[in-house]
Amino acid sequence: MTKKNIHYIVIAITGFILLFLLFVSSKERVQFYGIADSKETVINYNFPVFIEKIYVSPGSPVKKGTPLLGIKLAPTNTSLKTLPLEIEQLQAEKEFWKTKKTHEIQNTLLIQKEELNKINYTIDQLKKISDQNTSILKEMKSLKLVPNATTTTTEDELNMLKKRRADLLKKYSFTLNALENEKEIGSQPLFKEMEKIAAEVNLGNHEKNDLIIINAPDDGVVGDLLCKTNTYVKPFEKLLSFYESHPNIIKGYIHENAHSKINIGDKVLVSSSTNDTKVYEGTVTGLGSRIVTIPERLRKISQIKIYGREINVLIETQTNSLLQKEKVLLTHLENNDKDLNRVPAVLN
């Protein structure tokens, strides 16, 4: 049997013995609920950095020295973080320009089509009239009724309309070619600006220092991950949070009618609200300076608001089996209880 197993068995036996001793005692105790937590370590850097690699994910348990992030120092003479955004904005402007010109070309083609349809319709009608007149004149000539009759007027109108159609086609051809040129040439300054910014980014990448590895400061768990790879981060901006594997800080709330019975330095027993074998000794390290609403999770009846004082407790053992954010029961120990001859009973 390993030392670890023996340790857990001793804790379990001690818990049950202390629980029995409490039940046979009639002495009333001050008890209240709290939440197990641990001190959060925020990891940041005092220089602008480029996030090269991320080795962990939120909630990952890690050992001391485990690589968390791979970063490179960013050049301080260039706001490289904003350059990719500038490229995106210029790309959007370029696409907007091309879309705008495409719509103008489409509208111009529609207008051209409408005008040409009107002219073609008029030409078709005049052709019909001209053909009818020509047929009538031929018949009249054959009858020698109008030997010198002609259709000069209609032919002149047709020629004029055909010239107008040719001019119209020439005009719209020029306009459409101009719009196509604007569509391409007009976006070139934006493209050149994008190339310039991209060159600055590449130069900055070459100027960055060697990869710096940020390691876990101790055994623990990765909390929030607030950065992404291939991005720039400002100085002192939070990269990720890290907390110890075993919570050793308890934030409790004692009812306002009992808060005067407990003082800084007093001993309390901390036990899991769901497992009586998880029992640890703690010391009161802080008292709130005002009465506050006790969180719903820590009330006997969650729907009824009650008020109390915040109590901070430090668990003295270096390791424990409590979970992060686990609900715990705290029992105030009197002077004659400091030998841990009692264990808390569950509150009614």
Rank of each mutant, 00 (worst) to 15 (best):
M1K: 10
M1G: 09
T2Q: 10
I6S: 11
H7A: 14
I9T: 09
I9E: 12
I17A: 10
L18W: 04
L19S: 08
L21W: 07
L22G: 07
L22D: 06
F23Y: 09
F23Q: 07
E28M: 06
V30N: 05
G34H: 00
D37P: 00
S38C: 06
K39T: 11
T41F: 06
T41M: 05
Y45A: 02
I51C: 02
I51H: 00
K53D: 15
Y55H: 12
S57Q: 11
K72C: 11
A74N: 00
S79M: 11
K81R: 15
I87W: 00
E88V: 14
Q89A: 15
Q89H: 14
K101C: 05
K101D: 05
T102P: 00
T102I: 09
H103Q: 15
T108H: 01
L110Y: 14
I111L: 15
Q112R: 14
K113P: 01
E115A: 07
I123Y: 05
Q125R: 09
D131H: 06
D131S: 11
S135H: 12
I136S: 07
K138R: 14
S142Q: 13
L143F: 12
P147I: 13
P147S: 11
T154K: 05
E155R: 03
N159K: 05
K162R: 13
L168F: 00
L169Q: 09
K170L: 11
K171A: 04
F174E: 11
T175M: 09
T175F: 03
N177H: 10
A178M: 08
E180Y: 07
N181D: 12
F191Y: 09
M194R: 03
K196D: 06
E200P: 00
L203S: 07
K208H: 03
K208C: 04
K208S: 02
N209Y: 02
L211G: 07
I212V: 14
I212L: 13
I214K: 01
I214E: 01
D219P: 07
D219L: 09
V221R: 04
V221S: 02
L226I: 04
C227T: 13
T229V: 14
T231P: 06
Y232I: 02
K234A: 15
K234L: 15
K234G: 08
P235K: 06
K238E: 11
K238F: 05
L239T: 01
K251A: 07
H259F: 15
S260C: 09
I262Q: 01
N263V: 12
I264A: 08
G265C: 12
V270A: 05
N275Y: 10
N275W: 08
T277R: 11
V284R: 02
G286L: 12
L287Y: 10
R290I: 12
I291W: 10
V292I: 15
V292Q: 13
I294H: 05
L298Y: 04
L298S: 05
R299S: 02
R299A: 02
I301K: 10
Q303I: 15
I306N: 04
I306E: 09
R309N: 12
R309F: 03
E310V: 14
N312D: 13
L314F: 13
L323S: 12
Q324V: 06
Q324M: 13
L330A: 08
L330R: 06
L330E: 03
H332G: 08
L340M: 13
N341S: 15
P344S: 09
V346K: 15
N348V: 14
